[in-house]
Structures are given as C-alpha cells and as structure tokens.
C-alpha cells in the first residue's frame, strides 16, 4: 500500500482528474450555449447512433411483441368501450374538418400565412434512454437531416414530453419535462377554463413525487378548475401554439398566499415512449 500513492502515480492521478474536469466544464458550457455540438461530436454521435440502432432493433421488437400480447388480453373490454367513442368521434371529425377548411379560407382572406398554431411534424423512434439517474434524456432516430433543430418541442401520441437539447446529423437528444436539472421544461403554457377564458403562464417545475407539472405565480383572477385543459401558448418563439400538455389537477395558494400555483397532470406517460413526434414551427 505504500506504493499506491508514490509520487509518480499521484501526479498521474492529479493530471487525469484535471483533464477530466476540464473536459466536463467545456462540454457543459458548449451544451448550454451552442445550437449544435461541434462537428466531431456530431460525427461520433452519428456513428454511435448507427451501432445503437442495430442493437436496439431486437430489443424494441421484443417490447412491441410483449405489448401486443398484453393488448390482446384486454381487447374485448377495450373494443366495447371504443365502439361507443367511435360514433362520437366521427361527428367531431367532420366538425373539425369543416372548421379547419373555414379557418384556412379565412386566413387566406386575411393574408395570414403563418400563425402561432401552424407547425409541421417529424416522427422519430426512440433508440435509447440515458442509463443515468441524473439525466432524463432520450436519443431519437432523427436529426438535422430531417430538419430538427435545437429547442423544438417533442410530443408522444398523447401529449408534450420534452424538448430537443442536442442535434446531430442522424439522431438527437431529447430532455424530458421530468428533468429538473436545467431549464428544459420552461414551456409557455395556457389554461382555458370552461367559460373560454385563458390564463397564460410558464411551467415552473416538476414534482417528482406526484409526476405533476407546476405552474407558479399565477395572479390572474380567472377561475381555474380541476380538469381544465392545458396547451402550449406559442409565446416566446420556438414552441408552436396548441400542443396538448394535460389537464389541471389542482389549484392551491403558494407559500405566501399572494399568488396561486396550478398543478398540471401531463397527458403523456413519460416512462413508455417508443415513437415521438417533433413539432417544427
């Protein structure tokens, strides 16, 4: 044991630690500032992503196989329930189509080509999740070549799940709204109550114990009830308007009694993601 901390080894250890620390600081700084990582980093990510795809393919196949077995088990009950919904949906769909057509026409008359709510989507599959307890990140299978840019919003089939934080050529990283480590979850949102009035705000945090999003410092006098719908408001640039986030779970006073805090139940299940949609404004 005497030799363990001999001079030479101590020097090597210290140099290694300094190198490691330097690399970390630089990469954290680059991650926060630049819109895309340096070319060499993109290249490495693309190579790793290509290999990962080969390995993730059978794993995802197994997952979808087991999913279909469990789906099969409760098919009957689901079918009964869905049949009822389909009738109502047909009506709603026709209604939405006419409204969309009318909307398009009115926009043309107003010469309003792009509004806050118009966006295009790119679908991508999830290759991997960062195996770390500190970063709630996904790697998805589309990158800059498919038109993905940093800070775009990412949705699952049911609702908003996060934001693109790093873009490579053929894959990109998505930070989930459940991560508290950075400002990835600061979405501008809008709550509409049953009488059609809206409250604007920003997602201020994520409560890990309940899985709810929080919207703090709400001073508006508009009454918000449990079950009111929450969508993105489109303010602030990159996020389009009208992406569904979830419903209001509860409204309570904040610690000082001056403003209220709204808890939002996200519609998306953050632990079961295989296909995601990136919304491009």
């Amino acid at each position: 044991m005497q030799k363990f901390f001999s001079n030479r080894k101590l020097v090597i250890v210290i140099i290694l630690l300094i190198i490691s620390f330097g690399l970390m600081s630089v990469s954290v700084a680059v991650r926060n500032k630049k819109s895309t990582p340096p070319l060499i980093q993109q290249f490495g990510n693309d190579v790793a992503g290509a290999v990962d795809r080969v390995i993730a393919w059978p794993v995802n196949g197994l997952q979808s196989a087991s999913n279909s077995v469990s789906d099969l088990l409760n098919t009957y009950q689901e079918n009964q329930k869905l049949k009822k919904q389909v009738d109502q949906l047909a009506q709603a769909k026709v209604n939405a189509q006419t409204t969309a057509a009318e909307n398009k026409q009115l926009r043309k008359e107003l010469k309003l080509n792009s509004s806050l709510s118009s966006y295009t989507t790119v679908s991508a599959s999830v290759i991997a999740r960062t195996p770390s307890s500190w970063m709630n990140q996904l790697v998805i299978s589309k990158g800059a070549t498919s038109g993905i840019k940093k800070n775009m919003s990412v949705m699952s089939e049911t609702g908003l799940i996060g934001r693109v934080v790093e873009v490579n050529q053929t894959n990109s990283k998505v930070e989930l709204i459940s991560s508290t480590s950075s400002n990835a979850d600061k979405f501008a949102i809008q709550i509409t109550n049953s009488s059609g009035k809206t409250v604007n705000g920003i997602v201020s945090g994520y409560d890990k114990s309940t899985g709810y999003l929080e919207m703090g410092s709400v001073t508006s006098s508009v009454k918000i009830k449990k079950g009111d719908k929450v969508v993105t408001s489109g303010l602030g640039g990159v996020t389009p308007k009208g992406l569904y986030i979830g419903t209001v779970a509860s409204v309570k006073q904040d610690d000082y009694g001056l403003a209220s805090e709204v808890e939002i139940k996200p519609a998306a299940d953050l632990s079961d993601l295989t296909v995601v949609t990136v919304a491009e404004k």
Partner: peptide, 26 residues
C-alpha cells in the same frame, strides 16, 4: 459495446420500472 448499448435501450424499455419515483436505478 453490446452491453453499453443494451444499457441504453433496456433503460428505455423498462423505464417505468427502473425510474419509478423516488427510486432510480441505473
């Protein structure tokens, strides 16, 4: 390398079990 990438894709497949609040297992 297979083990490394399996870490990633299995973490995604079993995310509901591995990252269940308050526990997170890597």
């Amino acid at each position: 390398f297979i083990a490394l990438f399996l870490d990633g894709s299995l973490s995604n497949v079993f995310a509901g079990n591995l990252f269940k609040y308050p526990y997170s297992s890597v």
